[in-house]
Every structure is written in structure tokens, then in C-alpha cells.
């Protein structure tokens, strides 16, 4: 994405969310480039999900504006925003099979039935669930279910896809393969992705830039390299780098053993 001049896909200005007396987001502003993969890292309760819900229009901000392609979309309904969202626990339609899950929404978006099933079939194939297409979600593994959720989101061809801890319920192997899948999809569709994770290593491996948050505030938005080189403050240093260092250290011991 560094070859072409970057255009701004999403821009957020002074986003504030207050519940009663509690300020959950405090004048948060940031921008996301077209085709960028942005991760959001931060401790539990710092407002990550709140940002995502406001971006897609499921939640109303107390103050602030959301722009997409330069247009103010703050007042639009979720379906008018051209965004998709993938949740941690999949939120699939359990009473429909894989194919129907992907196809369902298309029917409401003025697609003909044939066209809808054509699009859905391609997507089901794309995420590698062709054999499973007649099964209900309850019969699938967690990783397979998350693939269905991703295919369902892709069906409406959103240019921005939001992920709220999509891998937290999955085992390590599945995470690694899904990680690659998501990156492949991003490359193929040119989507802009905003990705919440609790896994520093995952954020570093997948992201173009990482946003580090603490209780409703952004501490730093930067490329992984820059965060390593120049952590904005002591908090970023501690929350991101020390965490990573611990993992590296514990692995390094064993790698030494192996090479000894």
C-alpha cells in the first residue's frame, strides 16, 4: 500500500462516549488509510468495542464525527455504511445452513435469488467450506464457523471490515491459518480492516499500523517497527513491548536448547 498515494478511508474526529458519569471514549481522533490493516490493542474495558460499534453505527456517539471517504456518516444506519463486522462468538444464524447464512442478507439487498446463491456459493468455496455448505453451524468447528461469519460479511461486498477479537475463542493452529486467510482476503478484495485483538504478537504479525489504547484514550498509532523503535510513552513500552519481550524470552530459551 506504500506504492500508491494513500487515501483516507475512515476518519474519526473527537469521538466521545459517555455512559451516565463514566467517560468511555474521550475525544478520540484517528484516520485509517484505504486498504490498511489497523489493529487496536488495549486492556479490557478501554473502549475498543465501543469504537467499533460507533464506526459501524450500532452505537450513537455522545460527541464526535465519523467520516468515510470524506463524507460524514455519523447519522447513517449500519447497513448504509458499506461496512461489515465479525464478532468473537460468530453470531451465526444457527437455524440456517452454511449456504443460507451467507445468502440470507443478499435477498434483502435487491439481489435476485439466482444471483444471490451464485455469490454465496463462490464465497463458501472461497473460505474452503464447500463440503460443509449444507451443514448447520452447530456441526462445525470454531474456525469453520468464523469462516462462515467472514463469508457472510463479504457477501455484501463491504470496503471496510471490522473484527472484534475474532480469534479469541480459537486454538493456536486455527488462529494461524485464519490469520493467513484474513490477510489473503484483504489482499484479494482490497478491503480496509480494523481489527481488535488481545494478542500483541498477532497485532504485530498482521498489521500495517497498531493503535494502542488505555481507558478511552489513544497512546500511540504507528507501524509495528516504529512502536518498537520509538514507543510513545512508558505505558506503550510496558503494555506492548514488555509483553512481547516476555514471549520472546520464554521461546528463546527453547530455541537455544534446540540449536545447542
Amino acid at each position: 500500500m506504500s506504492d500508491t498515494p494513500a487515501t483516507i478511508k475512515i476518519s474519526v474526529k473527537d469521538l466521545t462516549k459517555v455512559y451516565g458519569t463514566k467517560t468511555v471514549l474521550d475525544h478520540v481522533s484517528f484516520e485509517v488509510q484505504t486498504g490498511e490493516f489497523l489493529s487496536i490493542l488495549g486492556p479490557s474495558g478501554c473502549g475498543k468495542t465501543t469504537i467499533l460499534r460507533i464506526l459501524i453505527g450500532l452505537l450513537e456517539p455522545t460527541e464526535g464525527t465519523v467520516y468515510k471517504d470524506g463524507k460524514d456518516i455519523t447519522g447513517l444506519s449500519p447497513s448504509q455504511r458499506g461496512m461489515g463486522i465479525v464478532f468473537q462468538n460468530y453470531a451465526l444464524f444457527e437455524n440456517m445452513n452454511v449456504q443460507r447464512n451467507v445468502e440470507y442478507a443478499l435477498r434483502f439487498n435487491k439481489e435476485t435469488k439466482d444471483k444471490a446463491s451464485g455469490i454465496a456459493e463462490n464465497l463458501v468455496k472461497r473460505v474452503g467450506l464447500w463440503e460443509e455448505r449444507a451443514k448447520k453451524p452447530g456441526k462445525l468447528s470454531g474456525g469453520q464457523q468464523q469462516r462462515v461469519a467472514i463469508a457472510r460479511t463479504l457477501a455484501l461486498n463491504p470496503d471496510v471490515i471490522l473484527f472484534d477479537e475474532p480469534m479469541s475463542a480459537l486454538d493456536v493452529d486455527t488462529r494461524l491459518s485464519l490469520r493467513k486467510e484474513i490477510k489473503d482476503i484483504q489482499a484479494e478484495y482490497g478491503s480496509t480492516m480494523i481489527y481488535i485483538t488481545h494478542d500483541q504478537e498477532e497485532a504485530f504479525a498482521m498489521s500495517d499500523r497498531i493503535m494502542v489504547m488505555e481507558t478511552g484514550k489513544i497512546h500511540q498509532i504507528a507501524t509495528p517497527e516504529e512502536i518498537v523503535k520509538n514507543p510513545a510513552d512508558e505505558y506503550v513500552e510496558r503494555f506492548v513491548l514488555q509483553n512481547l519481550q516476555t514471549k520472546v524470552d520464554s521461546l528463546a530459551r527453547f530455541i537455544k536448547v534446540r540449536h545447542a
Binding site: S77, N89, Y104
Partner: peptide
């Protein structure tokens, strides 16, 4: 799942329809 209606809304499927179909 708590997010079914939210998913519906992002997909342009209204709450009453999610109620009926899901």
C-alpha cells in the same frame, strides 16, 4: 447469541425480520 440483531442491522436486515427468520 447477543449479536444477532446487530449482525442483521449491518447486513440491512431489520430487527423484525431477524426475529421472524432467526
Amino acid at each position: 447469541n447477543e449479536h444477532l440483531e446487530a449482525v442483521g442491522l449491518t447486513l440491512g436486515v431489520s430487527r423484525p425480520r431477524i426475529f421472524r427468520d432467526v
